[in-house]
Every structure is written in structure tokens, then in C-alpha cells.
Design a protein around this nucleic acid. Structure first.
Lengths: 122, 122
DNA sequence: ATAACACATGAACGTTTATTCATATATTAT
DNA sequence: ATAATATATGAATAAACGTTCATGTGTTAT
């Protein structure tokens, strides 16, 4: 009968059992998905971008107005909108000189609400 | 009759209407909450921490085993566990020399699932 | 054509952050 | 006591990030 003890390189401790390792491997999404997930949350990890998204929850809006509501530079907002655009969280439509930004995702609000639940829990 | 046109300092454009500003102010949580929210997502915005949390979805685990599963240094994992602890996302229990970490929040999985939904949508 | 305006973008700067390395603390075994 | 082990942590380093400043692009009005 074969002994299924685990022996992992870089670590001397042998507390883990094979069934737990197997379970972890089942539960764990692909490396690429985990990377993308971290990238997404990195986008949410900035107050300015969070504020922009909350503003857009209320209404589509032009860059200049977002900047004015948040009391920030047009340039700063524009840079951040680019990040949000790249993550496909916002979309835009042009109307003459003006560019109107709006939300391009249904999950954002729910993610934020879950986040606030965590914060307000304890 | 008073004209309710909006005139905001730092910005020349006057596209916004008062009712939209009002709506934004209703929808927007307090400054402090927005800050905390960004801080929380900052914690999720790192592949190592995401992986640690996914490992803990499967089972409570000691530092050494997490390090071994993720193929990383014990020190690196320990530093990151500290961040997760500070955000009250994980808790620990000591058993002799060993410290077992486990999840301390019910929202994490749902937040991650919503995030993955966004990623896999388009 | 020229000026004015809304927005985008590249470079630079200061700050934050993740990992590494060395070392400290705490527990267990001899 | 001493050694071994599991974990924590401070300092250092390199990379990533957000804002500012200056300037570029495209549209509208004169």
C-alpha cells in the first residue's frame, strides 16, 4: 500500500494532506483568471475611480462635469477614465466637442455593495 | 423667478443641471466610506493575496503550507497575511508553533464571483 | 483662417507597494 | 540550557501608480 504523504520542495512542514491539496486545486481558478481578477480590483482600489463610478451610477456625464463635481483636474479625470475604459467598466459617446461617459457593466454596483457590507459588518 | 443654472468654480462648462447634481449627491456615499471601499479593493488588487484567499476558500491552512502551495517565500506570505488580517478578511488560531489562517468574511467569495462575471462577460 | 473649447496624452515627480534578506519571537523537543 | 522549527517583522530595493504640467487633437463658432 502506498503512503500518500506529501513532500513539497521549498518547505519542511508536512501538515498538509493530499486531499486538501486536491481540494485547493479544484477550487483555484486558472492562473490567468486570478491575474485578471487582481487587475480588476486594482482598478477599484483608488478613491478617484470609485468616485467616478459612483457619479456615473447617477447619470451619464461629460469629463468636465465629473472633474467639477469631484473638484479635480480635467486631466486627472481623463487619465482615470482611460483606465476605466480599458477595463471595460465605462463606455463613452461623443456629441460635438463633448464626450459623455457612462457605465458599461452591471456588476459594479453589486461588487461595491458587497464591499460596503464587509466594511459595515464589524 | 430664480434661474437654477449651475456655476461650478474650476470648470467653465455648464452642461450639468441641478437635478443631476442633486441625484449624484444622493447616490454618493460619504467620503469616508468611499475611502474605505477603495482600501478594501486595494487589498484584493494583488495576485498573491487573491491566491491566498482562494486557498483559504478550500481549507484553513498554516503559513508554511500556503507558501508551499503558492511556491512563494514564507516571509512574503506572512507579510501578505498581515495585510489580510488588518482588513479583517482572515483570522488565525494558534496551535503550538503553527498558526492556522482561515477566512473571516462571507462577502469575499461573492465579490470574487461578481468580478469573474465581469471578466468573462465580453 | 482663427480663436475658443472639450478632451486626450506623454513626461516627470513623488508616493505607495510587494518581495527579499536578515533577524527577532515564540514554541517544542532533546 | 540548547537546538530546531513556525512565524513575524524591520529595512531595503525595485516596480507600479496617481497627479501635475505642458501640449496635442478634434470640433465649433466667428
Amino acid at each position: 500500500m502506498v503512503d500518500h504523504k506529501v513532500d513539497i520542495e521549498s518547505c519542511e512542514c508536512n501538515i498538509i494532506h493530499q486531499n486538501i491539496i486536491d481540494k485547493v486545486k479544484e477550487t483555484m481558478p486558472e492562473e490567468e483568471h486570478l491575474y485578471d481578477l487582481a487587475e480588476l480590483f486594482k482598478v477599484f482600489g483608488d478613491t478617484t475611480r470609485i468616485k467616478i463610478l459612483y457619479v456615473l451610477f447617477a447619470s451619464e456625464m461629460c469629463v468636465c462635469d465629473i472633474a467639477s463635481i469631484l473638484g479635480m483636474t480635467q486631466s486627472a479625470i481623463s487619465h482615470q477614465l482611460r483606465v476605466l475604459k480599458q477595463s471595460r467598466l465605462v463606455k463613452y459617446r461623443k456629441e460635438g466637442k463633448t464626450v459623455f461617459y457612462s457605465l458599461d457593466d452591471n456588476h459594479i454596483k453589486q461588487i461595491f455593495d458587497q464591499g460596503l457590507s464587509h466594511i459595515n459588518e464589524k
